[in-house]
Each structure stands twice: as C-alpha cells, then as structure tokens.
C-alpha cells in the first residue's frame, strides 16, 4: 500500500538550516547535509530543502549544499527557493536534486510550470503555494515568502498548476505556520478533492495528532514540518509508530 509520507523541511540560509516562526525570527539548527542524513536514517520519507531568503533577495539556491545532500542522503529530496527560470532547474537537478519546488516564480510566470514539465517531466515539478485565509474565509495566495498578496485563490491556482503540468502541490498555510495548532485540514481536503496529483500539507504541526488529522481529515498524501523535528519535539520514528497505531499506512 502506498505510504503517507513524512517530510522534514530544511530552511537554509548561508548554508545553514534555520527555521522561521511565521516566516520571521530565525534560529540556527545545523548543517543541511548532516541533518538530511540524520533524518533519512530516522525514517523520513523525503526531504525538502528551501533557500528561504532567495526569493526575497534574488539569491540563487546554494548549489553546493544540494550536491552535499545528494551525496549523503539516499531518499528523494526537493529543492526550492529562488528558482526563476529553466536554467535554475537544470542546475539544481544536475547537482542531485530529485524535484524542484517553485512558488513566487510560478505565480509571476505560470508558463514556467509547463516548461519544467515538458523539459524534465511532471514528477520534477512541485508547485508550492503560500496562502492565507482572509476574514471572508477565502484562501488567498501570497508571493515572496508570504510578503505580497495576489489576486489568486488557493484551489483555483492549484488546479491551474496541475493542468500546466505540476506533479505535486505543497500547500503552506500562512495562518497556521509556526503556530503549532495543526494543519488547515478543511483547505487541504478541498485541494485533495479538486486535484488528481498528490498534496503535501505544510505549516502548523505541533503534535503527532496533527499529522494524523492532515492525512485523515485533510486527505493529504504527505505532511511536512520543520521545527518540531529540528528541535526534537517530535521524533520521526515515534511519529511513525503512532501513525501505525492509528491505521495510517506509513513506511
């Protein structure tokens, strides 16, 4: 049976893993290659490595970090941050990344999704969406790590991304990220119902039950978290044991 995936996210700045609480205030949590190998051994199913400052400051993701992770880690990993054109994708795949995640660049230039899918295959193209629930209940997509609102609505944009060739949607709730009160399960379920490609839940994990809820209520295919793993609040092997007792298929 296809397993639900647990994905630690490594936010990288200057070659080091950091974690933003609500996308501000960083804390250092170590070397990406070392941490990646540690998570791989601990039972992580995939890794996501984001160059979090790249989109804001126009910096390229650190290719050498990607190369070191590729050499040390035997599970798939996705790289994101600062990918604006096809040549960025090619450089990162050559460095050893399995997939790339595009966010602001896809909103600004949706055709980039088509280009990635046509050149490297849909399986390479993860479209990351940062969205926030407005007071009227609507989920609005944001640019640049959550700094700039757009006119795009979450589900409508995810469906377009799928039609253009996205292989997966990574949905981060700005309203939930860093708050540790759980994933946005209603919005996740709406995405799952509207899409035929896998959905990765991101933003809000604070307890093991939150993962279970994202898989059961949110119908997510994978759940991503950062600080709860980095600071040892939740251990991946214990999380998997817990999910097994809840009859959620995990590796």
């Amino acid at each position: 049976m296809l397993a639900k995936r647990i994905i630690p996210c490594l936010d990288v700045k200057d070659g080091k893993v950091v974690k933003g609480v609500n996308f501000v205030n960083f804390r250092d949590a170590g070397d990406p290659a070392e941490l990646g190998a540690f998570y791989s051994k601990a039972g992580a199913d995939e890794l996501v490595i984001l160059d979090i400052t790249a989109s804001h400051e126009g910096r390229k993701t650190f290719t050498d970090v990607v190369e070191r992770v590729a050499a040390n880690v035997s599970i798939p990993f996705t790289v994101g941050g600062g990918i604006n054109e096809l040549s960025d994708v090619e450089r990162l795949l050559k460095a050893g990344a399995d997939k790339v995640s595009i966010n602001s660049a896809a909103l600004r230039n949706p055709d980039l999704i088509n280009q990635i899918a046509e050149n490297f295959g849909s399986q390479v193209c993860v479209v990351a969406i940062d969205a926030k629930q407005e007071e009227n209940g609507e989920w609005v997509c944001y640019l640049n790590g959550g700094r700039i609102p757009t006119q795009r609505k979450l589900v409508e944009w995810a469906v377009e991304a799928q039609q253009r060739g996205a292989g997966e949607i990574l949905f981060t709730s700005m309203s939930h990220d860093g708050v540790k009160t759980g994933y946005p399960n209603e919005a996740l379920a709406a995405l799952a119902d509207a899409l035929t490609i896998p959905v990765i839940a991101s933003g809000g994990a604070g307890a093991m039950e939150h993962f279970k809820d994202a898989f059961e209520l949110g119908k997510a295919d994978a759940a991503l978290a950062a600080s709860v793993f980095h600071f040892g609040e939740i251990k991946i092997d214990e999380l998997k044991d817990y999910l097994k007792t809840q009859n959620i298929p995990v590796r």
Binding site: M1, L2, A3, R5, D45, S122, Q123, G167, E168, T196, I197, P198, D221, A222, R251
Partner: peptide, 15 residues
C-alpha cells in the same frame, strides 16, 4: 487508469 482516490503519478513509498 485514473479512478477516484488514485493519484497519478504513483509517487512515494510502496511495498
């Protein structure tokens, strides 16, 4: 063949 509840591509860890 796509059927409801089945995602394509088949992506992830399976037995």
């Amino acid at each position: 063949t796509w059927t409801p509840g089945i995602k394509i591509p088949h992506m992830g860890w399976n037995q």
